[in-house]
Design a protein around this nucleic acid. Structure first.
Lengths: 346, 346
DNA sequence: CCTGGGCACTCCCGGGAGGATAGCGCCGAG
DNA sequence: CTCGGCGCTATCCTCCCGGGAGTGCCCAGG
């Protein structure tokens, strides 16, 4: 976007003032206000001229004749890209996050859940944390533990220290020793492959010439198949839904409902979050531009996790006019901490 | 409540009509409507007399002079206790539930989550499912699996087939064999005790004269302590929050917010649900009577699980005037199915 | 004594009028 | 280029008024 070139310093300053005032007060901004709050020493009348220009350029719009101006999505985009300078999170919040994540527990899910809580309460918005996908992570080790006759738990450790465990039904008279034999077999054959590859290979071998497989192999493969048949649903933590209600100007209940519907319908949400992973850097996705359902909302998200392995996403969703100056560093910092924590722990 | 004695057949019929009409339309009911809809063949004027009596008795109230009557909480209580006859769930819904629960997975959490989904979508209300507490369940078997040096997973199987697993940090140079030794030791000593008892005993022995313990014992006890130090938070599944918004007459946003706050603040919710477990039978708890925060809501809940072991709770929460004739059998049936399923599976 | 028609009364609700307010556009002087 | 001033416009709030729904009460009739 080369829009920056076109904006004179004064226009830029006026735009900045309007956006920030709008973020702070959630109401159309008038020329008088801009005149007072901006760094410029211009009368309202002069400001009005500039505002008229900005309106022509598509940065501002009036809800109706003779109301103040509201920034458009384009204005927010511009503000984010060219005006907002990267800031760091307040010392206080940093400490809070570090402390909480420090003793959030050993399990990834606990950590991520905690993370989501933190994000929503610090941002006063809806937060979401999407766990890293496990499909492309490499197999390191599997264990089977007999729970009771006919039921066993499979514990799969993946590269990077991620784990999955799930219950599977097994032959009634399999002993723990049998299970160990099977896991040895599987570990020997599959270590280093990704889960997707494993799944593929298991299926191929099982459906292939059965007679060629000995009993051991076949049973081991069956176990593996049961344990990984379907890829496990990725954990998705959403928190702070309540914050949606506290907002001024959720004038339209229907949008609200749309939002809540989205939050309950995990698949779509998951897809949206996942699509933000690509850039690698923090990304602000304005409703009007990309999420066509949520015109007046925006999503600040960034991936976390080591760059070379599976990555999850943390994000904060709120109204278009949320406090980016705070939320962006917040999301950024949280993701960094999380990445660091995972690197250390796993 | 001996109020039933006092109600003449006509009064009862009028009350019934008003309650049911109010449930269906969520609006004050006038004498004219009652005259038409009730089984009685009386003119509005006569109905008015009866309605006046019912108002005096505290069963009805007027939002303002010259509006229709609304049933009070007392009326709902009466309706539930003496008018509503136990009905069975529609064949169709029964099948739906049986089918879905049938292939909900092997793990308890998956089953309960599914259950919650079902309840909310069939009732169009907010549903909640609280997992059985594990504190008073007896220990059956523990296993430790080394995940990587310094980290192990403890898998605890409880009586009735419930399981818990969690990660614990261990001595860097413990081998899998050591872990097996420890688990043998623990199983030998603790099988049959409840988790609370185990926790108590572990702490006592560890804090007691340390020199008396040999190395093996001490290390085994340490593992046990780490694995059970804090009782795990009970799973609580809430679904259908969205339904709150679809309701007519959530006139007051503040109540709505109260409700959502409650749903996020798990502890309180958990406490409320848990307190409904005592009766053993299905219970309808009207906001005004017992949950003083939620004046206009009511909770239909019932415990599930074998009577002699730990029991969880399923419930549906909705406005005072929800469709009890449908919700009560729904909750009841779901709990029964769940109980049966658990009995069979675990 | 119960029933039910009639009537006056009360209260809510929706629509319209009018004043106050906020903000714009434009013009014209400095 | 700046900016004070004026006229214009649209919203919001308040008040008011009439229609509608439903009650309470009275009284006649079975």
């Amino acid at each position: 976007m080369d829009a920056r070139m076109k904006l004179a310093p004064r226009e830029l300053e006026v735009l900045r003032t309007i956006v920030e005032d709008y973020i702070a007060h959630a109401a159309p901004v008038g020329s008088r206000t801009v005149s007072k709050r901006s760094g410029l020493t211009l009368s309202p009348a002069s400001i009005r001229n500039t505002m008229a220009d900005l309106t022509d350029m598509g940065f501002l719009e009036q809800p109706h004749t003779s109301a103040g101006r509201e920034p458009t999505a384009k204005a927010f985009r511009f503000y984010l890209d060219h005006v907002l300078r990267p800031t760091v999170l307040s010392e206080q919040d940093q400490q809070l996050i570090t402390r909480y994540l420090g003793n959030a527990g050993l399990e990834l899910t606990d950590i991520l859940r905690q993370c989501s809580r933190l994000l929503s309460s610090l941002s006063n918005q809806v937060s979401m944390v999407l766990a890293p996908p496990t499909d492309d992570v490499r197999w390191r080790n599997i264990d089977f533990v007999a729970v009771r006759p006919g039921l066993a738990m499979a514990i799969l450790v993946l590269e990077g220290g991620m784990m999955q465990n799930r219950l599977i039904t097994v032959d009634e008279n399999l002993s723990q020793d049998d299970l160990v034999t099977f896991s040895n077999y599987l570990n020997h054959h599959f270590t280093g492959l990704t889960l997707t590859e494993v799944r593929l290979r298991v299926l191929r071998e099982l459906s292939g010439a059965k007679e060629r497989l000995d009993e051991l192999t076949r049973r081991a493969l069956r176990l593996a198949r049961d344990a990984f048949e379907t890829s496990r649903e990725r954990d998705l933590f959403v928190d702070g839904t309540l914050n949606l209600l506290s907002q001024p100007g959720f004038s339209d209940i229907s949008i609200m409902r749309e939002m809540l519907a989205l939050l309950e319908e995990r698949t779509r949400l998951l897809h949206i979050l996942d699509s933000t992973i690509e850039g690698g850097r923090i990304k602000v996705c304005l409703g009007r531009e990309e999420l066509d359902d949520l015109k007046d909302y925006s999503l600040v998200s960034t991936p976390f996790g080591c760059e070379d392995s599976a990555r999850g996403v943390v994000g904060v969703m709120g109204p278009l006019r949320m406090d980016y100056a705070k939320v962006v560093p917040l999301v950024d910092f949280t993701a960094r901490m999380l990445t660091e924590l995972l690197k250390k722990r796993f």
